[in-house]
Design a protein around this nucleic acid. Structure first.
Lengths: 237, 237
DNA sequence: GGCTAGAATTGATTTGCGACAATATGTTTT
DNA sequence: AAAACATATTGTCGCAAATCAATTCTAGCC
C-alpha cells in the first residue's frame, strides 16, 4: 500500500456522493486532511476489526469488501467500483472498527478522508447528516434485498436478476461487460463459480443470451425477466 | 387494527431508543402527534410499498417484518419485541414507502409517531441525527452478519449461533425461552421448520441441551460454541 | 513470440436440505 | 371437556447445488 501526502484538489471532493454537499470552506478542510492511497492488483487495504481511522472514496480501480468464516471461506458483501464511497457507517458506531475486510481486485486509487475530522464536520450540519442518513437507509434496504434473495431465490433466479441489473445500468443497450471476473461475481451472488458457469451456459443454450469472455449480449430480455421472477427456462423447451 | 386518539404520556417517549434523547419541548411535541395502535393476534400493520406516514415503537407484543416472493413464500427479515422501534429508515428515503410487510404475531400495542413531523424535528438537531446514524449503522452491520451467515454457514451452525445469542441475552443463566414459535424462528434463520426440529433433536441427542416446549436448557455451552464455529457434533460420536 | 498462472468450463459424484406425508402435541373456542 | 385448529415432530424421498477432478481458455509477463 502506498499512502501519499499528495494534495486532493477541492474539486476531487465533489466526486464524493455525500461530501459534495459540503459548503466550500468545509470541502477545503476535508480535502486538506485527505490522503491518496494507491493499491496494486491484489492488496489488502484493511482488516475486519481494525480501528477505522479513514473513510474512503474509490477514485479508480476495483475493491472487494468481504468477511471470512472460521474455516477461511470468503464471502464478498460488496464490490466497489470507481465513484463509490465506503466505510462511512463506521463513523457512527460506538466502537469505530471496520466490520469487514477490504482488498483491491485491480490496481486502484483511493481517497482516504479523516474519519475523526469528518465526524466533527457532520456534527455541525443536519443537512449533511440527512444526506448520510439517506445513503445508509438505501444501503440497509439493499442488504434486506440481498437477504431476501438468498433465502427465497435459487441460483438461477439470483443470477438472472443480477444480469438484468447490470443490463439496466447500461441504459437501453442490450450488451454489457461484467465489472469483474466471474469468480467474484459468483461469490457475491453466493454461488460457486462452477454453478455460475453452468447456469449461464444454460441461458445460452436456451437462446436467452450470448457471451464472449466478460461480454454479455442479452437476446431475449423478456425471457430473462421471466426467469428472474421464478419461472424455469430450460424446462420450458 | 384499532387506532386511537388516546394521548401518549411524555414519559412514554422515553422508551424510544432515539426519541428519548429529545429535549423536553420536542418530546412533548412528538407525544402529542403520536397515536396508539392496537393489533390482534395476527393482524397486518402495513404492506410493502405503502406510503410510510408513521414510524413505530413496539410497546408490547410481537411483530414480524417480512418480504414475499413472487410465488408467495415469506421471508422474515426481523422479529420485533417490546421496546424495539422500527421503520425509521423510511424517513430518510427519497420515496417514503415501507420496504417490507409488517404483521403482528401476538396481541400488540404500538406507538405510531408522525414521520413527517419527526423529520422536521431531526432537521433541527445533529445530536439526534447522530443517534439515528448510530442505530442505522448497527442495523446495517447486523444485516451484513446475516448475509454472511446465510452464505457461509449451514443450518446447524446458524441455529447454534442463534441459540447462543438467545442464551447470552439472558445473562449468565443456562436456560431461556424462545421469544416466539419455532416456525417463525426457523423462517427468520432461513431454514424449514422440519429442519429446525431435526437439528435441535440432534443437539438433544448429543447431550448439548434439553428442551421442553419453548424452554431450552443448554447443558454443554462449549460444545454448542464448537458447533457454532463450524465443528460437527453428531459426527464426532 | 511462447510460457506460465490463474480463470473458466465441463463432467461425475455426493450431500444437505427441502418437499411431501403422516402423526403427535398444544392451544384457542364453544 | 370436547371440538377444531395450529404447531411441532418424525420418516421417506428427491433434487439443487456443492465437491472433486480434469481439461481448456485467457491474460500477464519475460
Amino acid at each position: 500500500m502506498n499512502e501519499s501526502r499528495e494534495t486532493i484538489s477541492f474539486a476531487e471532493v465533489d466526486r464524493h456522493p455525500v461530501l459534495s454537499q459540503l459548503p466550500a470552506a468545509l470541502k477545503q478542510r476535508a480535502a486538506e486532511r485527505a490522503r491518496v492511497v494507491r493499491l496494486g492488483r491484489a492488496e489488502p487495504l484493511f482488516q475486519q476489526g481494525d480501528p477505522a481511522r479513514w473513510v474512503y472514496l474509490c477514485r479508480s480501480g476495483q475493491l472487494k469488501l468481504f468477511r471470512l468464516s472460521d474455516n477461511g471461506d470468503e464471502k464478498i458483501v460488496n464490490l466497489i467500483n470507481a465513484g463509490r464511497s465506503f466505510a462511512e457507517a463506521t463513523m457512527f458506531m460506538s466502537e469505530r472498527r471496520y466490520p469487514v475486510y477490504c482488498s483491491s481486485l485491480k490496481v486502484s486509487e483511493l481517497v482516504a478522508f479523516d474519519a475523526e475530522d469528518l465526524v466533527s464536520t457532520f456534527k455541525t450540519s443536519p443537512e449533511l447528516c440527512f444526506q448520510m442518513l439517506g445513503m445508509l437507509s438505501r444501503r440497509l434496504h439493499e442488504k434486506i434485498g440481498q437477504i431476501e434473495a438468498l433465502s427465497l431465490q435459487n441460483a438461477q433466479t439470483r443470477i438472472a436478476n443480477y444480469l438484468l441489473e447490470e443490463l439496466r445500468k447500461m441504459g437501453s443497450a442490450s450488451r454489457f461487460e461484467l465489472p469483474i471476473g466471474k469468480k467474484y461475481v459468483a461469490n457475491f451472488l453466493s454461488v460457486k463459480a462452477e454453478t455460475f458457469s453452468r447456469v449461464v451456459a444454460g441461458f445460452e443454450q436456451a437462446g436467452v443470451l450470448t457471451t464472449h469472455a466478460r461480454n454479455f449480449t442479452v437476446i431475449d430480455v423478456p425471457a430473462l425477466e421471466r426467469i428472474a421472477s421464478g419461472a424455469s427456462p430450460a424446462a420450458s423447451c
